[in-house]
Amino acid sequence: MAFEPIRALTSRTVVMQEENIDTDQIIPARFLTTTSRKGLGKSVFYDWRYDENGAPKNSSILNGVNLDTHKILVAGANFGCGSSREHAPWALFDFGFRAVISSDIADIFKSNALKNGLLPVEVDDKTHRELLGAPGATVIVDLESQTVRIGDDWQATFQIEPFARRCLLDGVDPLGHLIKQMDAIESFERTCT
């Protein structure tokens, strides 16, 4: 397990309104020629954060954000679509984010994020609009009760795949879980080959 178990996270949000934020935006392909999973945070949203001379763009919300206090990214619908590159959640995690909230998060991204300590949280449209409209809001994401709380008066639930939830809460290691099934795997192999 490369990360600490997560129970609840209280943090302020960074809001990116855009829909369909794809994995090429999160981490452009030219940064994929790495053989490590570390150090990708500096390239996250690179083309949104830097101009052609490599100077930080003032227009980018991610430049100057305090990651100690803002660990939750709120994004438009269909976040993380596109590639299966696990570099996308690695980069977001390495940058400092611990949760992504959207109304709908792409399947492979979601599965990859869950394996890397980045919580993908899909909320209903109303809650999503509320969050998109309140950049910097303090939000509590509680994995145990599967709720998102915004301030004192807004609460919503979210779904998360139960096994991934256990992995995150209890530090269950999915590879270890698979290795424990080795007897079943071996007998399956005997019947089909």
């Binding site: 999973r37 299966s84 590159r85 696990e86 492979i108 599965s111 990859n112 394996k115 890397n116 795949e161 096994f163 999915p174 590879l175 879980h177 698979l178 290795i179 099934q181 080795m182 795997i185 192999e189």
Partner: peptide, 19 residues
């Protein structure tokens, strides 16, 4: 398509966890 963690799972066990 699978992610890199799952590539590791398949390399090690020839299986993936999938709903």
């Amino acid at each position: 398509g699978i992610g890199t963690t799952e590539v590791g799972h398949v390399l090690a066990t020839q299986c993936v966890l999938q709903r």
